[in-house]
Write a protein that binds this DNA or RNA. Structure first.
Lengths: 135, 135
DNA sequence: ATGTATGCAAAACATTTGCACCTGG
DNA sequence: CCAGGTGCAAATGTTTTGCATACAT
């Protein structure tokens, strides 16, 4: 039940928050932009403002319910947080997004940060290419 | 001489293009945003429009003279292309940018793309953290 | 000469914010 | 009831574009 997740995250259970969470849980496309979520809300008959969608998604991010991916300088997309860290492969033709985990890369990143005297707070890795369906 | 590089890149040698290239070559900060370049031009007494700076930087990118880094969703910064591929470490406090090369990561990325059926065209890796000067 | 490049102002775009009104606990 | 949430419109910041003028070859 979504309301539990919201309460647990310290967020008041309001209609926009419940609806946005529902959309994110029900969508087949795991990755949605704020605009995508907004359109999905309209389609399901909800009158929720785009500004609210942005606010809610940001709150969800702060609460750890979703993660924000910043695709190459353009807009951001959000995915439900499931606790598993992973990076992304993006198809430059069809915009498909796939996920992967690689321990070797994770370790190397830590080593590099250490070597350079950085206290690593985060990292982002995107591999761009043409997916099997598009070539 | 900059004019040669421009001609070689198939670009007509114009004052704005020469001046932008000069700025990029002379700056100590290897990474500059369009705005940074624009300000530097003004400081050196050149009357070049911001729109032109954007156009010129994009042409330089297409011509392979510079690379564009898309820092986490915000604005872009440009660096002179020297042929050496590398990735970046960013200080979240002072915005310092450092570079690194790691063959292990490069190899793993290729392997992952292959494994997932992607024909890799590019990749971007940013490590965020607090640099030695800020901690 | 003539096809490109530039400057300016306006448009585009994703995102954020101010503020009066509404709502959940 | 009342702090916090929402909707709308306006502001933001970066980048792009239309168009008349200027320039490189």
């Amino acid at each position: 039940m979504e309301s539990q997740d919201l309460r647990k995250a310290g967020l008041k259970v309001t209609l926009p928050r419940v609806k946005v969470l529902e959309i994110l849980e029900k969508t087949k496309q795991r990755h949605m932009s704020a605009e995508d979520v907004y359109k999905a809300l309209l389609e399901s008959g909800e009158e929720i403002g785009l500004a609210t969608v942005y606010r809610v998604l940001t709150q969800f991010e702060d609460a750890g319910l979703v993660s924000r991916l910043s695709i190459d300088g353009g807009h951001a997309v959000f995915e439900l947080e499931d606790g598993s860290h992973h990076d992304h492969l993006l198809c430059v033709k069809c915009n498909r997004i796939e996920e992967f985990v690689d321990e070797v890369i994770e370790q190397r990143q830590k080593a590099i940060a250490l070597e350079k005297g950085f206290d690593m707070t985060d990292h982002s890795l995107y591999i761009y290419g043409i997916c099997r369906h598009c070539q």
